[in-house]
Computed example of a mutant assay.
Amino acid sequence: MSTSAHGRVIVGLSGGVDSAVAALLLKERGYEVHGLFMSNWEEDDDAYCTAAQDFQDARAVARELGIPLHRASFEAQYRERVFEHFLREYRAGRTPNPDVLCNREIKFGVALRHVERLGGRWFATGHYARVVEGPSGPELHKARDAAKDQSYFLHAIERSELARTLMPIGELEKSEVRERARRAGLPVFDKPDSTGICFIGERPFREFLARYVNEAPGPIETPEGEKVGTHRGLPFYTLGQRAGLAIGGRRGHDERPWYVAAKDARRNALIVVQGHDHPLLFSSALETGPMHWLMEPPAERLRCTVKVRYRQADQPAELEPRADGTARITFDEPQRAVTPGQYAVVYVGERCVGGGVIEAVERTQAPRDRVDTVRPARWSGSAGPI
């Protein structure tokens, strides 16, 4: 039984500076703080998995703060609920975002149930986002540090889970977080940020994907059908990608770089264009799958801003809700490399109100008929990790 005025809070301690300072701040506020280290990807021969060192760092933080540290492995659930979906999407020619699923299924799913078993009244994380009490319940808002805001990755969690969640560093700039850690003597105050896939870490992504997805070489073509190279398999390329195409100088073409504009899964062809701002790289609208809302679902058109990838600036748009729970989003200005399988996340001001998987895009200029651009369940791409 907790004797703290605020009750027991279980902080997801990752071994990094953000979660360490989250625990520090909550202890200073009078909570009974426990740490929970989650290890969800363990391979003995994997040189890129940092779980062992991260656990030691989490132990050092807990020792410095004088708090208990629990450890749990959700590896089976991660592989079943996140990683298998990740692979299915890639094999289908789409580009998923595993961090969104990781938050929904693991951190705010099975981990939250584990928090209950540990007697936690609250669950806290080191996310850069804010939970704000609104007129009709908890709301998810952007972090004060716009450059670090992670609300994009949190849009798919349930609103009821927000009511039990604390995100104390959402009010701080990253520089303040590191300074608080340094002043408190936390050993991870200068530990570099992790930028890899949720729980899998930082690694050469193509090399990693090739362990699970077979190569299937095919032609690289222009929209007019001219072959300009050979690709190693559609899952290994993303919309808007420039690097790794291995297209040298071509007779009849200028020196502008080539970019991936489409994937034609029926013919196993990768479609490329020249120039960063080629019209085939831009979309004026998109359609989502079922929307997940962190507010009452709108009954009418909604003026909003939208992100179609993390770190993108908010893009003014109009959302048209549909009776089947999906939505059509029309942008004020065309957007580059909108990617099926990624998420369109919706904001009203500073508040994140929901999002959905991008299922289809409407190009500002249509390629020739034999390339499927309207229903790109067979198309994919990303501004992401490849």
Rank of each mutant, 00 (worst) to 15 (best):
H6C: 10
V9M: 07
V9R: 09
G12D: 14
A20F: 07
L24W: 14
G30T: 09
G35Q: 09
D44Y: 13
D45F: 14
D46I: 08
C49W: 12
F55G: 08
A60F: 10
E64M: 15
E64A: 13
H70I: 06
R71N: 12
R71V: 15
H85L: 06
T95I: 03
D99M: 07
V110H: 10
V110M: 14
R113M: 13
H114K: 11
G134V: 06
S136Y: 11
E139T: 00
A143G: 02
D145N: 02
A146E: 12
F153N: 04
I157S: 05
L166Q: 01
M167W: 02
A181H: 11
R183M: 09
R183S: 11
A184Y: 12
F189L: 09
E202Y: 06
P204K: 01
F205L: 09
R206D: 03
F208Q: 00
A216G: 09
P217Q: 08
T230W: 13
R232T: 14
G233L: 06
L245W: 06
G249S: 04
G252K: 06
D254L: 07
D254S: 08
K263D: 05
A265D: 12
I271D: 07
L280W: 01
H292R: 12
H292W: 11
M295Y: 05
P297T: 04
P298F: 10
E300L: 08
T305W: 13
K307T: 06
A313F: 15
Q315V: 05
P321Y: 03
R322V: 09
F331D: 00
R336Y: 01
V338Q: 00
R363S: 15
A366M: 14
V371H: 01
